[in-house]
């Protein structure tokens, strides 16, 4: 499973260019700006400095669109190569399957990160224009946490793409899993206390095994103007996220290396 970094970066560049050629990002960016500005133009009791509801709507749109972009883009990378038969000339070159998968995943992650950065810049400008202040640290932390969370989701989608036959089923499963973790993840252990054995142990095992992507959601802190998170805890969170991304990517590489392509 030896990897060459220049092969990975070349493959990442290819998948990034492919993502930017598609119009998905531009459409959702325009949609986010239009929807947010439309909401922002509503006059609530002649109080121009009200910002909470606009921040909330803008962040919700950013979260939904970033997730959709990340999952749909990642889920189709490997299956489309296999379906079009382009995987064979690609593998005929001096690149390994691991390099192909890691390169494509990295490309998706960086491209999504650039899109996310633009989203957060727009969000910060909007919030600052309303509140006349900006917590730079918390905005940076929110962006980084969100990007790392997307790393976990992208690696999950790549693992799904080498397991499931169709990208559509992989996309649906990934979306359902991510939403379920976001909603239930934090409460699973508490819920398990009211269950009887063996369900209790099963739920607890799930609770401690799943990547808690809800931890990366800083929306409430941003919307209600809380101070930035302590940096030592924030870096621990980033390590936690990178760890899960690596776990999913490694499993995906192992499965992809053993997969019969035809």
């Amino acid at each position: 499973m030896g990897v060459k970094l220049n092969n990975i970066s070349a493959l990442a560049g290819v998948s990034m260019r492919e993502m930017y050629r598609r119009k998905d990002f531009y459409v959702v960016l325009i949609l986010t700006v239009i929807l947010t500005l439309a909401m922002g133009s509503i006059n609530f009791f002649n109080e121009p400095s009200v910002a909470g509801y606009i921040k909330e709507i803008c962040l919700l749109l950013i979260w939904i669109f970033a997730l959709v972009i990340a999952i749909t883009a990642s889920a189709r990378q490997i299956p489309s190569e296999i379906e079009n038969g382009t995987i064979f000339p690609l593998l005929a070159k001096p690149v390994t399957r691991t390099e192909v998968l890691v390169g494509k995943a990295l490309g998706c992650w960086i491209a999504t990160g650039v899109a996310l950065f633009i989203f957060y810049v727009i969000f910060a400008l909007l919030a600052a224009s309303r509140e006349h202040s900006l917590d730079f640290s918390l905005n940076v932390q929110s962006f980084l946490a969100h990007w790392i969370m997307l790393g976990i989701v992208i690696s999950m989608a790549f693992l799904g793409s080498v397991i499931f036959a169709a990208p559509s089923s992989n996309t649906t499963i990934c979306l359902v899993v991510v939403v379920a973790i976001m909603v239930l993840g934090r409460h699973l252990n508490r819920l398990s206390l009211n269950m009887s054995e063996p369900m209790r142990t099963i739920v607890q095992v799930i609770y401690f095994s799943i990547p808690h992507i809800e931890l990366f959601d800083f929306r409430n802190l941003l919307v209600h103007n809380y101070p930035a998170v302590a940096w030592n805890k924030f870096f621990l969170l980033l390590i936690y996220g990178v760890g899960y991304s690596l776990i999913f990517t490694l499993i995906a590489c192992l499965v992809f290396n053993r997969k019969r392509l035809r």
Partner: peptide, 14 residues
């Protein structure tokens, strides 16, 4: 907090 995840998570939401 029930466990380390619960304790850790409290730094990231109100």
């Amino acid at each position: 907090p029930l466990d380390w995840i619960d304790r850790f998570s409290r730094s990231f939401y109100p």
